[in-house]
């Protein structure tokens, strides 16, 4: 039985198709909540959760404010909101200023998860075109959570994984297949 309480994943450019592939590969009895923060194009604000649901065996939820995080579901940060996880395991949303020109901000979601789950968290950074997420992943590592960065050589855009590697040393650098296998072994 896994000691972890949650998995949080951040990604930007190139991560949508990758996420579809990962969701398709995650086993249907996956026990932990997966908290997902992905940058979206401004003109594509809807339809992402629906596309993911087609591939995913786990339910895809765009959470309401104060909704409780439950095991075995995927929580996707809603378009145009920042998503925080509170210490009591509920979601808080915010419309405050963008971070790296992005709302949702990956840093904000990852840092709040680091505070809420501490060493019982797995944090993963995927392909992406800016540095959002690097600080958040470092916060997870600082709280002794388990950190994974997608191998930049396999990333469609390697800025985001490289930015993370520049500020911290993750537990593992993995190809997408390796990340899927890691999650299925939790």
């Amino acid at each position: 039985m896994s000691d972890y309480k949650a998995v949080v994943i951040g990604g930007s450019a190139g991560s949508f198709s990758l996420m579809l592939k990962m969701l398709a590969g995650i086993k249907s009895d996956f026990k932990l909540p997966i908290i997902l923060c992905m940058h979206r194009l401004k003109h594509v604000r809807s339809g992402i959760a629906e596309s993911m649901q087609i591939k995913s065996k786990l339910p895809i939820i765009e959470p309401m404010d104060k909704q409780r995080i439950e095991p075995g579901a995927v929580y996707l940060a809603p378009a145009n909101y920042h998503m925080f996880i509170e210490l009591d395991g509920t979601v808080s949303l915010s419309t405050e200023e963008m971070n790296f020109f992005c709302r949702p901000s990956i840093d904000y979601t990852l840092s709040s998860c680091a505070a809420a789950y501490r060493e019982k968290l797995v944090g993963i950074i995927l392909t992406g075109a800016n540095a959002d997420g690097a600080k958040g992943l470092k916060d997870i590592a600082d709280k002794k959570g388990y950190t994974i960065v997608q191998d930049p050589a396999t990333a469609e855009v390697d800025t985001m994984p490289k930015s993370a590697l520049a500020v911290m040393t993750p537990n593992e650098v993995l190809k997408p297949e390796g990340i899927i296998a890691f999650l299925n072994n939790l």
Partner: peptide, 9 residues
């Protein structure tokens, strides 16, 4: 106020 975002601000 919600702790997490307030604390960060």
């Amino acid at each position: 106020y919600s702790d997490e975002s307030l604390n960060r601000r």
